[in-house]
Design a protein around this nucleic acid. Structure first.
Lengths: 214, 214
DNA sequence: ACCATATTGTTACTTTTTTCACAATAATGT
DNA sequence: ACATTATTGTGAAAAAAGTAACAATATGGT
């Protein structure tokens, strides 16, 4: 089975598209419908499905609800996922307020910060002192953390949570972090995404389009 | 010149790493230093540089300040970039408050929302009614917008801003949008990033690691 | 019950991306 | 001044990812 990260990302996209199709009243879907709504080729869809052992019906396409069930199970969406946030600054606290994760079965259950002024044990998503992180992770059996601390603090914070048992990290600090390879780190960097846009927009202005692959 | 989006993203990463090295007092850097701090191979660094016509000195590596100047110019960081935000909900308003873009020369100069309650013409980053978007983009010559509106409104909002002259969009809505191919769209989706982590973490728990490519 | 048709599943092919490998060469020490 | 060594720059090789093509087959119409 030859699988890579992009594959899983596409699986999430298929899932989102399927929910939309389902909401429109569709019951079954063909690889090319799904391809169109996600923006990939039909071959890609079928290949991805075959990688994960998802099968449909020749001439009949895929049954949307069965397909969703399968994808959700692959993506581990059977049970709700508890997540914590390290760093209650601008990004961290925006994430704690953000309700959009819930419909995906992802719950941010606590935040942690080194600054005493940020502590608030009675907020809807409570914020605890950083020292309590390790104990919290262990007693609540948390696997996934969002790291939203300043650059200089990031590696140290990562070491702390890895030692406590965290296995997956969504990192907002704009630098490469090091962790045991049993820990998966995904990077989010809006500055880089914007810089990327700026590049393509200005190249296009200079050249009049067509030269650049995206 | 064979160049792709990942190449530009790596260029941004090199830039960030170079600033850190510079802050530590380094004056020159070798491809393998840079590779280490960004997490790629030294060959990759040199190849990327050769694509953009960046050259160093045999045996002498690269002069950090000259290198930064070159990369910044490629990335269009010579002049500050004005950006607007469409949608002043949770994500949109967090972005408007976020000061982290400024050190990258990116300034969010206004927000727009359809909800009259969100309008605030005198905020540090003012929020205007959606109807004024087109005029604002034209008079201020804006090229780049962040799209932070609900799914159902996204395509319509995109059509509006594209018609007004926007050329690059950072989209937070979790669906594929359609635009003329003179417009670049980058997608940000934290739910998908988290789902991705959940997948890798649970696969690892089941298999005991080593089977999965990332 | 059979035929024509549409769609899957998978293998082979193509393209893209990354890595390797090494000649060219600048810096350093003797 | 010369030899040695470290590092770049790049073309060729390898690996990875994506696309195309088509045989297999289920479906629906007649």
């Amino acid at each position: 089975m030859v699988m890579n990260k992009n594959c899983i990302i596409r699986l999430s996209r298929y899932k989102n598209a399927l929910y939309r199709l389902q909401a429109l009243g569709f019951v079954k879907v063909f690889s090319d419908n799904l391809a169109d709504s996600v923006g990939v080729t039909a071959s890609q869809v079928r290949k991805d499905f075959s990688i994960f052992g998802i099968s449909g019906n020749k001439k009949g396409g895929y049954q949307i609800d069965a397909l969703l069930e399968k994808i959700n199970s692959i993506l581990g969406k059977d049970q709700p996922q508890k997540v914590i946030v390290i760093g209650a600054g601008h990004i961290g606290s925006a994430l704690m307020r953000y309700r959009g994760f819930e419909k995906e079965g992802i719950r941010i259950i606590a935040g942690f910060d080194i600054d005493p002024a940020k502590i608030n044990r009675s907020a809807p998503v409570p914020v605890f002192p950083l020292e309590e992180t390790k104990a919290f992770i262990k007693t609540n059996n948390i696997r996934i953390a969002i790291l939203a601390v300043p650059d200089i603090a990031a590696q140290q914070a990562l070491d702390l949570i890895c030692a406590a048992g965290i296995k997956g990290v969504l990192n907002f600090a704009p630098l490469r972090l090091h962790a045991p390879d049993t820990v998966t780190i995904n990077y989010v960097n809006l500055e880089i995404e914007l810089e990327n846009l700026i590049y393509f927009v200005s190249v296009e202005e200079k050249t009049g389009k067509g030269q650049v692959e995206k």
